[in-house]
Every structure is written in C-alpha cells, then in structure tokens.
Amino acid sequence: MHYWVAIILGMVEGLTEFLPVSSTGHMILTADLLNFTDEKAKTFEIVVQLGSILAVVVLYWRRFLSVLGWERQRVKRPRLNLLHIILAMIPAGVLGVALHGVIKQYLFGAQTVLIGLIAGGILMIVAEKLPRRTTAQSLDEISYKQAFGIGLFQCLALWPGFSRSGATIAGGLLLGTTHKAAAEFTFLVAVPVMVGASGLDLLKSYQNLSMDDLGFFIAGFITAFVVAMFAIVSFLKLLQRFKLTPFAYYRFVIAVLFYFFILR
C-alpha cells in the first residue's frame, strides 16, 4: 500500500499539473483521502511536481533549444525567443519571491483552495464568453506585450487552487491568442517558474528526505513523468475541441467535493 500511495498521487499530479483544474486542489483532496498529510507528504508533492516538469522538457526539447538559441533557424522569421519567456516569468517570479512565506503560511489551506477553484473556473468561463480578436494564431506569433500580459495572469496562480494553466490560458485568450498557442506557451513558461519554486521549497524541506523513502519518491516521480506526458498531448487535443468551459464546470464539481470531504 505504501507504493500504491506514491503511484496514485503521482498519477493525480501528472494528470492535473498542466490541465486547468488545479493540481494543488486535487493533490490535497487525494492526500487527505489517502491519509497522507504529514511533512513528508509536502516534500513528496514537490518531488512528483518535478516529474511533471520533466515531461514538458522531453516533449518540447526542440522548442527549448530554439528559445535558448541553440538551434539554427533555416528560415528567418519572427519566433518565440527567450525574451518572451523572461517577460512572462517576471511578474509571478517577483511576486512569488516577495510573498513566498506569506503564501505558504496563510494560503495553503482548504478554504483558500476552494475559493481558488471557483474563482479560476469563473475566469475561464468569462475568457470563453467575451468577444475577442485573435492576433496570435500560433506560438511564434505571440508578441512581447502578450507574453508579459500572460505573465501578469500567471500571478493569479500564486493563490492555491487557482491553477497556473487555467489562469494563463484564460489570460492568453483575453489577450488575443488561440487556445493552442496559449496552452503551449503556458507549458514552456511553467518549466523555469516551477523549477524555481519547487527548488526553493525542496531546499527548505530536504530534511524530510531519507534513503528509506528513496523508492517511494522515485515511484511517484516516474509515475508523474509518464502520466504528464500523455496528459499534455491529450489536453491539447481536448482543448481544440471542447475549449475551457467543460474544465471550468469540472472545477465546480471538485469544489463541491472539496467542501464535503475536507471542510466539513
């Protein structure tokens, strides 16, 4: 059962990290149901999150090389570059570092996650319903202004339960990108942001790690990595067909479950 807990939580993390449904909310709910809520559980969540991040790196390795300038362009045309990523990282990066202690101390609770689930779902519905003019059909057509604007929306994800992908994809739509362009940009920006945040958390909680738990953590990491790869590919196909609205309604269902299983 020890390893089944790691595999189940790894699956939940891999499935939800890049979907606009809040991986934090799902992990808290699942961990509570599995009675895995001690300090070691918090460290485990950081480790499996790194597994999900690795999935993006593997799937988009060519794009990362291009962004870093390590892949020669055959055709000279406007392309997504490192400045786009930096501009999108700045708002949440600055705010996250400044408020890291406050967020961890006061916002990582069941009630705040419940609020984040509902508020994020409402934003996603609004982004789908409002009329807009699409100016970026693909990832390479995203402007610096749109990149920075998406970064501002990413700040909303500092509130647990809001969902990074939900906030940034909705923000991208409101700023004139397509669903696919916003989603892929979200994946790319998530890597440095999540590595930084997870690395900071890991430095503060590494004392919870021990050699006895190595197999448990590896099982969760590998599971999250494999599941996240399938989840990312499947999500892009679903997003093209169903848009954000079904995911918003799903968030409301999770919020109800969160209320009855965690808050009551």
Rank of each mutant, 00 (worst) to 15 (best):
F217H: 08
H179I: 00
E17K: 00
L34K: 06
G215T: 07
N208Q: 15
A110I: 04
I125H: 10
V5P: 03
S163A: 05
D38G: 12
I218C: 11
M229L: 11
I118E: 05
F235S: 05
W4P: 00
S198K: 12
K40F: 07
W61F: 14
I222G: 11
Q240C: 05
P192S: 06
L99T: 15
I122D: 00
H2P: 00
H26M: 00
I142L: 13
V256P: 10
R133T: 15
K76E: 15
L107V: 09
M27F: 08
G121F: 11
L65Y: 02
L68W: 13
R74P: 02
E17P: 08
I232V: 03
Y106L: 02
F44G: 07
G121T: 08
E141C: 08
G220A: 04
A182W: 04
V233E: 13
N35I: 09
T186L: 06
V102I: 12
F217C: 02
T178L: 04
W159G: 00
A98M: 15
K104L: 14
I262P: 00
E184Q: 15
V226K: 04
I218G: 05
V75N: 07
E17H: 01
P246E: 06
M27S: 03
F235I: 13
G120W: 06
A41R: 01
H2D: 12
L50I: 15
M194Y: 00
D213H: 12
K243H: 13
L202Q: 07
V94A: 13
P246R: 10
G10L: 03
F148Y: 01
L83C: 03
A255M: 09
T223C: 08
D201F: 00
F18R: 01
H84R: 02
H26A: 06
F44E: 08
L188K: 06
M194R: 01
K237D: 07
M194E: 00
I142K: 11
H2V: 12
S22I: 12
T135R: 11
I142D: 10
I150A: 00
L19Q: 10
L33E: 05
Q73P: 13
G116A: 10
A167S: 14
F235V: 07
M1Y: 12
V193C: 10
H84Q: 04
I169C: 04
Y206W: 13
F258H: 04
F221H: 07
N81S: 11
G120R: 10
R79L: 14
L117F: 14
T134C: 13
L29F: 09
L68D: 10
F44I: 00
L33I: 14
G121P: 04
L188R: 06
G101T: 07
W61C: 08
M124I: 09
V47Y: 04
G220S: 08
G196H: 03
I169D: 08
L174A: 01
V21F: 09
R62T: 13
L238H: 04
M229W: 09
A88R: 01
T186C: 13
G161Y: 11
W70E: 12
A136N: 01
P131V: 03
V253T: 11
